[in-house]
Amino acid sequence: MYITRAETQTGSPDESSEVEFISLAPGSELAYTLGQRHCAGVITDNGHHACTNTSAPYCQEHHSTWVCAKCTGTCLKDEMDCYESHAIYLAVFAPDIHKIGVTKQWRLTRRLAEQGADYGIHLQTVSNGRIAREHEAAIATAASITDRIRAVTKHTSLYQDVDESAIAAQLANINAESAIELHTGSQLEIGEYIESLPKVDVSVSESMTDTGENNITELKKNPDPPAIYRLAYGFELSDRPVSETIITGTVRGIKGRLIILDYAGSTYTVDMRDLVGYTIASGATTRNLQASLGAWE
Rank of each mutant, 00 (worst) to 15 (best):
K221R: 14
M272I: 11
S12Q: 04
V270N: 03
V67L: 15
C71T: 09
A140D: 06
T248R: 05
I247V: 14
S144D: 15
S55D: 14
E134Q: 15
C59E: 00
T248S: 15
G27R: 00
H122E: 01
Q60F: 12
R37N: 13
H122S: 07
I3K: 07
P26Q: 08
I97A: 11
A284P: 10
A40M: 01
S144E: 13
E136I: 10
A94H: 07
E218S: 10
Q290K: 12
C59G: 02
T245G: 05
T156M: 08
Y83V: 04
Y278A: 01
Y58N: 13
S207L: 06
A291R: 14
W66F: 12
G35M: 12
T250G: 08
Q9E: 14
E181K: 15
T72A: 11
W106Q: 08
T72V: 10
G73R: 04
R107P: 00
I3T: 12
A295K: 15
I190M: 12
S203R: 13
H86Q: 10
H98A: 08
D210L: 10
D201W: 02
I88H: 02
L24W: 01
V126H: 00
V162Q: 00
K220P: 02
I228H: 07
Q105N: 04
V162R: 00
A166Y: 05
K70R: 14
N128M: 06
A113M: 08
R5N: 11
C51H: 07
D96N: 14
A264N: 15
L34A: 09
S196G: 07
Q290D: 08
S17H: 05
D78M: 11
D96K: 10
G212R: 09
A295E: 10
G47C: 11
K99A: 08
R287H: 13
V102T: 15
G116Y: 01
E244M: 08
R148K: 13
S282Q: 14
E192C: 03
E84K: 04
I145M: 13
V251F: 05
